[in-house]
């Protein structure tokens, strides 16, 4: 990765994540895919170590892009990102960051067991001619128990339920012993009971492993259940509050739409916000792509 001069921010306790004036656009984005028309505009955000941040926003708001920036898969067009005071690529190399990708992209026909999935990323750091060290094997067993995946460790991926696979993917993300866990739309396609278990698991991991957690979702309910703070994202950052601080005004700003009626009870009516946001947000995002 290119060496760029970083602003050195002096502080007593380094934050887990610092974004200062981060902007990103897809200059070469193919115009046929409207979801790539996203622009992140001047985002500044600090996440203290140990915090659980939910990034909430409609589809196409740049949530996944934000995660990719934090992972160092893409670089910002301007601004700086520090992960535990390291560049994102360096932090990734050190194993500081664990990533739980969207579950629905996974091919269920793949001939691997739950345990083999958890092994996958640590295995990549083992030399081709060497076996996985016994120590690593033990750690993987522990992880499977920790996320409650021990009993189905030997089952093929095709036989796992959505919630079970979610646990397996979380265990895999933890296999590099990260301090920061990033989750991309973790609750999509998981039923209510599963979502509750998922929130419990995340709370437990947060407590036991002292993790900093960033969860990206278009599901307010999932975020409200397990986050200390919420960032609302639609191109730019619209609010940065505790879950209780999501007011009708904030939502209206994010969705550029009057959704006051939604907030009678966030937990019950959050889905209404999802229903109404799609067109409005696309309309907002597209002019920005006109460059």
């Amino acid at each position: 990765m290119s060496q760029r001069p970083h602003e050195h921010i002096e502080s007593a306790t380094p934050s887990a994540i610092e974004l200062s004036h981060v902007s990103f656009n897809y200059r070469n984005a193919p115009s046929r895919n409207s979801s790539s028309a996203v622009v992140l505009d001047d985002i500044s955000l600090t996440v203290p170590a140990g915090e659980r941040l939910g990034v909430f926003g409609p589809n196409g708001a740049g949530k996944s892009t934000l995660l990719k920036l934090m992972l160092g898969i893409i670089e910002p067009c301007s601004g700086h990102i520090r992960i535990f005071d390291q560049s994102p690529t360096h932090a990734r190399k050190l194993g500081t960051v664990g990533f739980v990708p969207q579950r629905l992209n996974i091919v269920s026909a793949f001939p691997v067991t739950a345990r083999q999935i958890v092994e996958m990323t640590v295995a990549c750091t083992t030399k081709p001619l060497k076996r996985l060290p016994a120590q690593t094997q033990l750690y993987i067993d522990e992880l499977m128990e920790l996320v409650g995946a021990g009993e189905f460790a030997a089952q093929p991926v095709g036989t796992l339920s959505g919630g079970q696979l979610q646990r397996v993917l979380i265990a895999r993300a933890l296999s590099n012993k990260p301090n920061l866990l990033l989750l991309d739309e973790p609750t999509v396609g998981i039923d209510l009971a599963g979502q509750q278990q998922f929130a419990q698991l995340l709370n437990e991991l947060h407590r036991k492993l002292k993790l900093t957690i960033v969860m990206v979702s278009h599901d307010l309910r999932a975020i409200a259940a397990g986050c200390d703070r919420v960032a609302c994202l639609a191109g730019s950052l619209h609010a940065h509050t505790s879950p209780d601080g999501i007011t009708p005004a904030v939502l209206a700003e994010v969705f550029s739409h009057d959704v006051a009626s939604v907030l009678g009870d966030i937990h019950v009516h959050a889905h209404k916000a999802e229903e109404c946001h799609d067109e409005t947000c696309q309309q907002e995002a597209e002019p920005e792509n006109g460059s």
């Binding site: 992972l71 898969i73 690529t89 990734r92 190399k93 960051v97 990533f99 990708p101 969207q102 992209n105 996974i106 091919v107 793949f110 691997v112 999935i117 996958m120 990323t121 990549c124 993917l169 895999r172 590099n176 991309d184």
Partner: peptide, 10 residues
């Protein structure tokens, strides 16, 4: 198995 996760670990 999972190209996104591959990118995320380099």
């Amino acid at each position: 198995f999972d190209p996104d996760a591959a990118d995320a670990v380099g």
